[in-house]
Computed example of a mutant assay.
Amino acid sequence: MKNLLVQFFRLLVATIVFWSIAFCVFIMIRYFQIGVEGGKAFEVGKDIPGLDSDVIPITQWLEFGVFSGIVVGCIYAVVEFLFEKLRLNKLSTGLVLVEKSLIYLLMLILSTNFIITLIEEQIDRNLPNEQGWWIQNKVFWLVVGYFVICSLIFSFLKIAKDNFGRGVFFNQLIGKYKKPREERRIFMFLDLQASTTIAEQLGHFKYSELIQQCFYDLNYVLPNYNAEIYQYVGDEAVISWPFDKGIKDNNCAELFFKFQDRLLKKEKNYIKKFGILPKFKAGLHGGKLIVTEVGTIKKEIAYHGDVINTAARIQGECNAYNETLLISETLLGKLKLHKYKLESIGNIALKGKESEVKLFSINRNS
Rank of each mutant, 00 (worst) to 15 (best):
N319V: 11
A320Q: 12
Y321P: 15
Y321I: 09
Y321T: 14
Y321F: 11
Y321G: 08
N322T: 12
N322H: 13
N322G: 12
E323A: 04
T324A: 10
L325I: 03
L325Q: 01
L326N: 00
L326C: 01
I327M: 09
I327H: 04
I327Q: 00
I327G: 07
S328Y: 09
S328R: 03
S328K: 01
S328W: 01
E329V: 05
E329S: 06
E329A: 07
E329N: 08
T330I: 14
T330W: 09
T330R: 00
L331Y: 03
L332T: 06
L332G: 11
G333T: 09
G333M: 12
G333Y: 07
K334A: 14
K334D: 10
K334G: 14
K334V: 10
L335M: 01
K336A: 05
L337F: 00
L337T: 03
L337Q: 04
L337K: 11
H338W: 10
H338F: 03
H338N: 06
K339I: 10
K339E: 12
Y340E: 01
Y340L: 10
Y340K: 01
K341C: 08
K341E: 08
K341I: 08
K341P: 06
K341L: 14
K341R: 09
L342K: 06
L342V: 12
L342T: 08
L342E: 07
E343W: 09
E343A: 01
E343D: 06
E343T: 07
S344C: 13
S344Q: 04
S344H: 05
S344P: 02
I345A: 07
I345F: 03
I345M: 02
I345P: 05
G346I: 14
G346F: 09
N347R: 02
I348V: 14
I348H: 04
I348E: 09
I348A: 12
A349T: 01
A349F: 09
A349H: 06
L350W: 02
L350Q: 06
L350A: 01
L350E: 08
K351D: 00
K351W: 00
G352I: 03
G352W: 04
G352S: 07
G352H: 05
K353H: 10
K353M: 11
E354P: 15
E354Q: 15
S355F: 13
S355Q: 15
S355W: 13
S355R: 13
E356Q: 09
E356A: 10
